[in-house]
Write a protein that binds this DNA or RNA. Structure first.
Lengths: 228, 228
DNA sequence: ACATAACCGGTTATCGATAATCGTTGACCA
DNA sequence: TGGTCAACGATTATCGATAACCGGTTATGT
């Protein structure tokens, strides 16, 4: 096990998978030497992988005290929506024309999302949801916007969020709510597309808020996501 | 030299300073072993510092090939403004009330900015400009927004941008353009504050665009910034 | 009893050395 | 001449060992 190009990248992937799958939970310590021993490698690549994951915000380290899986609390989950709404509003506005060549692609995303939702498969649904949004972000052509959006690690967050949603509120058709965006792109209407993106993200935030309020003990989202 | 808490942080600061001051230019290689020898330390903390600076987008590395100072081109400089405008619009909207307790602070920033501008001191001006904006971003209370804004490394970018501006177009009073924001905060008008923030950032972008157009050979901003 | 100091196990931060990899140079041959 | 490839120097990626550091615990003095 562990054999490809750059060890630290493989370590990173493995640790990321541990986190996403729930094998390790928020707050858990990630001890460099232990991980190194478990993977049969030295401390250096592990250390490097952990630092990378700090930049991704999956891990937090305190000097001389070590790394832990970052705890994503309800406040943080909710705080992301206004930021996404702003960024995606901009992306929608910029991308309304250039995204037209991706209309088929976008519709495939919505379709797959719908199916995954019916199958209660949060991971797959998150994947297509994120692909939909990323397609539009990238069509904006603004590389800073793209990098900024990517830095929010929306894929992972969406996954844990949808896991919760599907578990606790399986009657909301999220996939279908992407159609207004598709329509605005088809019409090439920049303002409408931006507005649709904003509204879509804000709506999603509202739904999550309700989920939280109806299910107060769910404060540790990543931890509970392992059920999916 | 080099003596505080964490070596890699000191290395990072030193390298950052080398870049900001123009002692090393975009495209220059940053050889781990050479830097280590020059600073009288081992390769590890240098390596770590470089990886951190990749996350900050000041450095780029290719596996097995090493690190170079990242080239920031005109396109990238211009692309940041729409993103900033979106984020700061949001921040202004959220912060109009809570920033009221920082009104004095904000006015100090503008004052210092004005003085630095008169002294043609781009570094100091950037410092106070960024402090002004950061104060409002932080008053928004949204930690994701704060982190996202920080990830744009606006301080360093503003410095190189202002260096150019001061060199090439010293007749524009940028500092004074912060007053509409201060006024909106004083009035506690959320919508106006958001709008003022957006307009301010967009105006700055416009000014920079003009600077670029009037000075076509300036495409390598970091490189030329060493004049400041 | 209580505060403080010395100690200890566990872990991180740093070191110096080595293996792996890259780009280049120059020999060799068709 | 032109092209392939082996060897080289430079540099990165990884290693194993050690020093520095943290938090908790026990020993010590008042």
């Amino acid at each position: 096990m562990i054999q490809r190009v750059v060890l630290s990248d493989q370590v990173k992937e493995e640790l990321l998978d541990d986190i996403m799958s729930g094998r390790v939970k928020p707050g858990d310590r990630l001890v460099e030497s232990q991980i190194a021993k478990r993977m049969g490698i030295s401390q250096s690549p592990v250390r490097e992988a952990l630092r990378d994951m700090v930049a991704m915000r999956f891990v937090e380290v305190q000097p001389h005290k070590g790394a832990r899986v970052r705890r994503i609390d309800q406040r943080e989950v909710m705080e992301i929506y206004p930021v996404r709404a702003s960024l995606e509003h901009l992306a929608g506005t910029l991308a309304a024309s250039s995204a037209q060549k991706h209309l088929d692609e976008l519709e495939v995303c919505v379709d797959r999302m719908t199916k995954a939702f019916e199958a209660k498969d949060a991971r797959t649904m998150a994947k297509w949801d994120v692909k939909f949004h990323r397609t539009i972000i990238e069509a904006s052509g603004n590389s800073i916007l793209i990098e900024t959006w990517n830095s929010l690690m929306i894929e992972a967050r969406t996954f844990v969020t949808l896991s919760n949603l599907i578990t606790h509120k399986s009657d909301i058709d999220l996939a279908g709510r992407h159609y207004p965006i598709v329509d605005a792109i088809r019409a090439g209407d920049h303002a409408a597309c931006g507005a649709a993106m904003r509204q879509h993200v804000e709506e999603f935030g509202e739904v999550m808020k309700v989920v939280f309020e109806n299910d107060a003990e769910v404060t540790d989202m990543v931890g509970t996501s392992s059920a999916a």
